[in-house]
């Protein structure tokens, strides 16, 4: 069985984020990592491979040169090979906007790559933790005409069927879908650490580099249909308010504020 895992490299959750001219200032970001949901996706795929050794996992990513680090890590965790679709984000004035393609444009590119590679099952994370929009996986499913399960926690494959467990509010849901299919992952058992052996072997695994142009995606499919009007940092925390006076008055004022201002009681 052939599984494609689509991964995105995003600013590390500990990296400093600043906003300038309605864009994320990429020059301030000192560390990138795989989006955690994509790591869940890879872990789910690896668990299928653990049970069926003839499973082949190909990582696919779109991004600039730095994504190779993430790909090395994925290969060290156990993926078999990888395709990097090269894309250097455009400069807007003095700033680099890392996500200069909108979700549908990315989905068009990735869907073209998926067709070129071939697959029985496709995984993506439910969303990238940078833009947090969550539409690339779903749009790809539509573009490829595949049945889609979103927000999977685990998958079991037998024959031409995938049984997917997903969390629903207060419970669990089991779905069956026939392959080929696309699954987006919202969780998994903790993604495994790369092993030392895996790390040492990662460099010998094939990594192909493709240009977007070689995928034959029509120019209008790459055009952004959504325009960002504003991007702001969350407001800074307000200073706390100190209640003064007799304890009885303080309590009454506190209860009043909780009810009328904070509206939590």
């Amino acid at each position: 069985m052939k599984i494609l895992v689509f991964m995105k490299q995003v600013p590390d959750t500990a990296a400093p984020i600043s906003v300038k001219d309605n864009q994320v200032d990429a020059s301030k970001i000192d560390k990138y990592a795989a989006s955690p949901y994509d790591e869940y996706a890879l872990e789910q795929a690896l668990q299928i491979k653990d049970k069926a050794a003839d499973t082949k996992i190909t990582l696919v990513t779109l991004g600039p040169a730095r994504v190779r680090e993430m790909i090395m890590q994925g290969l060290a965790m156990g993926a078999d090979d990888a395709v990097i679709i090269k894309h250097e984000p455009a400069k807007h004035g003095e700033l680099v906007e890392p996500n200069d393609l909108d979700g549908l444009a990315v989905a068009n590119v990735l869907a073209a790559a998926a067709k070129k590679i071939g697959y029985d099952l496709i995984y993506t994370g439910t969303k990238g933790v940078d833009d947090d929009q969550g539409w690339v996986g779903i749009a790809m499913g539509e573009l490829l005409g595949l049945p889609l399960v979103a927000g999977a926690r685990s998958t079991e494959v037998s024959g031409g069927t995938a049984r997917v467990l997903r969390d629903v509010e207060g419970g669990k849901e089991k779905l069956e879908v026939s392959l080929p299919a696309l699954i987006t992952s919202s969780q998994a058992t903790e993604p495994r650490y790369p092993t030392l052996k895996g790390i040492m072997g990662a460099k010998r695994k094939p990594v192909l580099e493709w240009d977007i142009a070689s995928l034959g995606v029509a120019a209008d499919a790459l055009a952004s249909r959504v325009e960002r009007v504003a991007l702001d940092m969350p407001p800074g925390r307000q200073a706390g308010r100190l209640l003064l006076g007799e304890p009885n008055d303080q309590v009454q004022e506190l209860v009043r504020l909780l009810r009328e201002q904070a509206k939590v009681i």
């Binding site: 890590q73 060290a76 790369p194 030392l196 790390i199 040492m200 990662a202």
Partner: peptide
């Protein structure tokens, strides 16, 4: 590899 090992 050593970088990835150290990071891991």
């Amino acid at each position: 590899e050593q970088k990835l090992f150290k990071q891991t």
